[in-house]
Nucleic acid binder design. Sequence first.
DNA 1: TTAGCTGCAAAAGGTTTGCAAATTA
DNA 2: TAATTTGCAAACCTTTTGCAGCTAA
Lengths: 140, 140
Amino acid sequence: MADDRLGQILGQLRSRGGRVTAPRRAIITALLDAGEHVTAEELVDAVKLMDPEIHLSTVYRTLETLTDLGVVDHVHLGHGPAVYHLSDDAHYHLVCYHCGSIIELPPDAFDALGDRFQRDYGFRLDARHFALGGHCRACA
Amino acid sequence: MADDRLGQILGQLRSRGGRVTAPRRAIITALLDAGEHVTAEELVDAVKLMDPEIHLSTVYRTLETLTDLGVVDHVHLGHGPAVYHLSDDAHYHLVCYHCGSIIELPPDAFDALGDRFQRDYGFRLDARHFALGGHCRACA
DNA sequence: TTAGCTGCAAAAGGTTTGCAAATTA
DNA sequence: TAATTTGCAAACCTTTTGCAGCTAA
């Protein structure tokens, strides 16, 4: 089934006139294997186990292409590097300013607030791209 | 009254064993004059009109000192540089991913959500440090 | 006097870009 | 063949840091 997903993504790539290359195959595979948030750096490390030639800039470029394709998204959890994940795994993030721990929120966590912003400001909230900060139970 | 505020901040600085210097005076004045969000870059430009010698790194260091003092806060509105403002002007931000326009929210905007996160996860939300993204009316 | 600041230059960290060579379709 | 990707090196942008000299208290 991971293979299905891989084939499906490669198909999307081709149908846009993109090429299927060894680096891209490796990067998408690593992304599917990771199963959760990974930084570009972590991804290149994983990918280098399959092919040590693959360069970080190729990872960034592929990630960008996959983002355009709507297959990948990235989230800013804080001051450090962005983390990437497959778009079908949509969720929100709470990050502790003190210890950095992350709480994942269900997709409906902002429905009420989103409705209110829509009504009050005509603003369509999408709080997925930046995490929300605060202090977790242990650090409160 | 801006002078009052300046004197008050300088007093806080001194009471911590800090020194009152010409660069600091200029930076705080510029911050008070700005009245709203400014980047470190914008701040150094404003400050250089008073004293062209003042260096960007001094601005960053002063901003850090004032943050420790609880006088200044900074917010990340998106991918660019952080913006700084006086702490007594507390509010939240909605940023349009498309056009970058900013909506300022009143200090109680997240009360309900914060209570819910507190209850459900023991997480004390503080959504001031990173803006929330979405699409404004014009870009929806 | 002396702890604390400053300017400057350099580095750090994450990401992007120019380019010529390699590869896909 | 023609268009797309790649690796590499270098640039980019914001912020931080090391250091020697300067200055406020």
